[in-house]
Nucleic acid binder design. Structure first.
Lengths: 392, 392
DNA sequence: GTTTGATTGTTAGTAACCTTTACTAACGAA
DNA sequence: TTCGTTAGTAAAGGTTACTAACAATCAAAC
């Protein structure tokens, strides 16, 4: 399944993972060693986004000399991260190039999505984000430490299913998650100040990264969905959450609570009472249960469409100041297609346009995600790729 | 006025400025030379924020060895950027330390504020942002290329007034300004696609940086006003603009238009017609001329206070989604104290709190700036310090 | 008064890194 | 076959930061 490099990696195990991590960790002073790590990452990045490059291609792309690139590539090949594909076939003058690629199948990434109702989902992917294996666990009624155990058990099954050395574990969790991967608050799971990242890292002896589900989804959309450098991803489900990408980077917020849009009050005309105590929160307009209730109460198609459009309008009203203040280039929605993709989306787009300064570019693109239900696990995988390899 | 290093810098002139600039410019590959530039900047940063450090102190703070720090400091002293202050006086065992500092009075920064009504303001500061000299130019009725000439003339006067080598020129301009310092649109000055930065750089042969006035103000608030790492600065004047700091960095936006909040529609209950054609824009509620008109129409103090509170509420309504989405830690207002600081500010703060999820931290701090009318020129100076020295 | 220990800053030598220069290998075109 | 081009490698050189060692200097303990 995995070539020599991967086996090598398996032998050395955790130490190797740490080394990858340290090669990326940001810091202040630059020693020659750090400089080389940085250049290593640049080579990996180039290889990641366009496979089939030669050493000479890399030298041109990265800006280092062929000599240095050869040296770096030799390191990466020795580590099992890069493989030679063979000679380039096209007819050009000169010595034929040896094509390289990241060892895409030589490592596995494990990604978990804890944001579904009563269900934990997990996948094993390769370095491309291709899903190789799926597992899930029913967690109806399970909260607190039992839920932590359920995550750990699911992780164990995924590790057992992985057929290549595991590069790391990414987790998208509901609630507010801080930089250290501690879930500060996730009411549905009964979690408060749960150090999920540390707990899973200790039990699995793998690098683990935990983040909020909507934030993870935003990363996925940025990496695999082609989202703009300045974009917001809004996830509509039992609640409403968002992830923001500003200048190509995920926004964390003053208290790690960036994207918590669900309980922002929309409009100046009241609204339903929310679970949080306020009236007119975005969730009261947009959350799927409320939306479905309103649709069931509707008699005909027009009324239903009006209900969806009203929800979309509320979304647009709350997003307009964000789009204006950040000058966002794109708004992406994630959630049930049958409800979101249609009147709701169109109404939201129109509302945003009519309430912001339609600069010469005609306002932001507003669209559904193309990543479907895997968006959170894909984002969790991106977290691992970024954290362990520095890719993206 | 300026010590030997400064004279030296004067002689070599522009070439030196370029060198400073190149030492900061971001890039991809890391060569040893780039690494050293980076470390140079780290030393400067440490010295900038706490004067009176020894080489050994720097070594501890930056993480490099004393040997390397000594070498870097020797370079910086040779360049005139750092000076020795003398021996440390306090009684400690060991050889007394030689204290160092950035040559704070040895260089000047020129900063311009083009955002006033019919007035261009400019200052000369030292590296601390202390204003040493002021100039202004009445530009009533002056627009287009005449306005560009007026800026250049004001800049010439400031250069002539500077008593130390000029490190660079920062300009805070109204309108939308792109990364290259081109004013894409500034209706009041009759500017569209005016390459102000390039024009001034060519005429003055100095490094020039142009940015939007509210964005510059946000930088000033972050650097000199102690603003939070995630904050928004709202500037209320003839129009309404904002600058956002996210993760400690200024947000530019998809089309360089971040912070353009003035023409975002507020609320769902209509409002006055705006110059832009829409109704209920934030400017129609908050801009100073409109606000003053409403106050003059009011009969008694209570009505006036209510008008101010209403304006503050509208500001809060439009900021709430931004505060929630970005999880901002602070909201800072800049503008006429007599109008903003009071009912308006309190109402805005209360509205933001009541419309966002009052996380465990009680919502963002909401306050006036302490930097007064110099906020934009100070921000322009910060741009120069950041761009030329990498400080902050 | 002397010794001891601590701190600062410098000198000398070393290891790591990237570059320049020069080379071989391999290929198409004339 | 020769020429020009491209890919990759090898050797030498310069820059960078590190370790080790040292002199200068001072407080505090003896």
């Amino acid at each position: 399944m995995s070539p020599q490099g991967a086996d090598l990696a398996t032998q050395r195990g955790t130490a190797r993972q740490q080394r990858f991590a340290s090669s990326v960790r940001a810091g202040s002073r630059v020693t020659p060693e750090r400089a080389r790590s940085h250049n290593r990452v640049l080579v990996l990045q180039e290889l990641y986004r366009s496979e089939g490059l030669s050493r000479a291609d890399l030298a041109r792309a990265v800006g280092l000399t062929r000599v240095t690139i050869s040296d770096l590539v030799a390191d990466l090949i020795a580590d099992g991260l890069v493989i030679e594909l063979g000679l380039r076939s096209d007819a050009r003058p000169g010595k034929p190039a040896t094509l390289l690629d990241i060892n895409r199948k030589g490592f596995a990434v494990i990604a978990l999505d804890l944001s579904y109702d009563n269900l934990f989902r997990g996948v094993v992917t390769d370095l491309d984000g291709t899903v190789l294996h799926r597992e899930h666990a029913d967690v109806t009624g399970i909260t607190g430490t039992d839920a932590i155990d359920a995550v750990a058990a699911l992780l164990d099954r995924l590790v057992a299913a992985a057929k290549a050395p595991v590069l790391g574990v990414g987790v998208g969790s509901p609630g507010i998650v801080d930089d250290a991967g501690t879930v500060l608050s996730a009411p549905n799971l009964g979690w408060a100040d749960v150090p999920l990242q540390a707990a899973l890292a200790e039990r699995s002896e793998l690098p683990v990264l935990v983040a909020n589900d909507a934030n993870a989804a935003a990363l996925a959309e940025r990496t695999f969905g082609g989202a703009h450098e300045d974009a917001i991803l809004v996830r509509v489900g039992r609640g409403v959450g968002a992830g923001l990408i500003v200048g190509g980077r995920l926004v964390r917020g003053a208290h790690s609570a960036a994207g918590e849009l669900g309980h922002v009050v929309v409009g100046t005309d009241g609204g339903d009472v929310c679970a949080c105590g306020k009236s007119g929160c975005l969730e009261t307009w947009l959350a799927i249960p409320r939306l479905q209730a309103r649709l069931e109460a509707a008699d005909d198609a027009d009324t239903r469409r009006a209900a969806l459009a009203a929800a979309g309008e509320r979304l647009g009203i709350s997003l307009a100041p964000v789009v204006g203040a950040l000058n966002l280039g794109e708004v992406v929605l994630s959630g049930p297609l049958d409800l979101l993709d249609g009147s709701l989306l169109e109404s939201a787009a129109e509302t945003i346009r009519s309430r912001t300064m339609a600069d010469s570019h005609g306002g932001p693109a507003v669209r559904m995600t193309t990543l479907g239900r895997d968006i959170v696990v894909l984002g969790a995988a991106v977290m691992v790729l970024t954290g362990q390899l520095g890719v993206f």
